[in-house]
Design a protein around this nucleic acid. Structure first.
Lengths: 168, 168
DNA sequence: ACGTGGGGTTGCCATCATGGGAAGGTCAAG
DNA sequence: CTTGACCTTCCCATGATGGCAACCCCACGT
């Protein structure tokens, strides 16, 4: 079984199979006389295991542990469950993060008229400094959400570019 | 205002400020005689805007659009709202994905005893081929979740490594 | 006036998982 | 024996970020 067939059978791209092998996640399979990687059913099975673990969002180091446990007949299911629960916690953390963003942004979007006028609470909120920001040295920008005269595009640049130019 | 102060005032690291400038998200600020970037309050304000947009998970190309709209007095709030709603949809899509994973994995973890025994439904599920997988050429692996004799580690490798070795 | 430390500048490398592509070797079918 | 599909390795890129190295600049202290 060549790498292409193994890829089709496992759902892992050939590129990724080589990558997993290079990073030590997979043991190198034997090679044919021409140097082709030759996979057997067990190898494909391992690849499917890895893909399934990735589908659950496990990071590669954890997948390495999982594969090790899977192939270890003396494993204790306690260790597997611990990894799984840690991943559940991580997923919940990420879900919570995204939900915070989603709720805040949906609320903002709902408050925006969405018409042809320039006034927009979304931009106003984005432009608003929040608690936790160090104060700017002078609060001179009152017309925040309509500032259009920002930094000068090209003015008096590189008065002494000698050293930088010389280095390259 | 040097880049360090601008970073502290905006919450964007100096590294990221340079990165945003290099990728065209920020216009290059004027430089001092020594070549230092010099930021004014408007520049810091823009940086805070960008950081806030990143906090909402907007991708950089979208942030570019948002900054453009923000600085465009002739903008229409419709365009802003459209970007925001697209981002809300994207966040919901990601949340849904993660929730699928989380639910499935939590269910699996709950079904695992988590004791000293090797038997583990989590590993069994990971090892189980799902619908959508191309069938393996022969279904020879019945003792799936306890397979420990996988590929041979080092056997008859590189019978003809001449070309590869010669190239490097 | 001179040194020194802190901070600026560029550039390169690394992440993490993945894809793309080039240059070259292998294999199987016609 | 040719040809086209497939494999091999190596290099590069992503997106957003951090780290390090080498070098430069500035302000402050003596």
């Amino acid at each position: 079984m060549n790498i292409g067939e193994a890829a089709a059978a496992s759902g892992v791209s050939a590129k990724m199979i080589r990558y997993y092998e290079a990073t030590g996640l997979l043991r190198a399979p034997p090679r044919s006389e021409g140097g082709y990687r030759v996979y057997d059913a067990a190898g494909v099975h391992t690849l499917r295991f890895i893909r399934r673990a990735r589908d659950f969002g496990f990071a590669m180091p954890v997948i390495r542990q999982l594969v090790g446990l899977w192939q270890d007949p003396g494993r204790e299911s306690h260790d597997v469950k611990e990894l799984a629960l840690a991943q559940v916690a991580e997923l919940r953390r990420r879900i919570g993060e995204l939900q915070m963003m989603e709720a805040a942004l949906a609320r903002l979007a709902a408050s925006c008229h969405g018409d042809a006028r320039a006034e927009c609470p979304i931009l106003e909120d984005l432009a608003m400094p929040r608690a936790g920001d160090r104060a700017a040295p002078f609060p001179a920008d009152k017309n925040s959400s309509s500032c259009h005269a920002h930094q000068a595009p090209e003015s008096a640049s590189r008065r002494r570019p000698a050293s930088r130019a010389a280095r390259s």
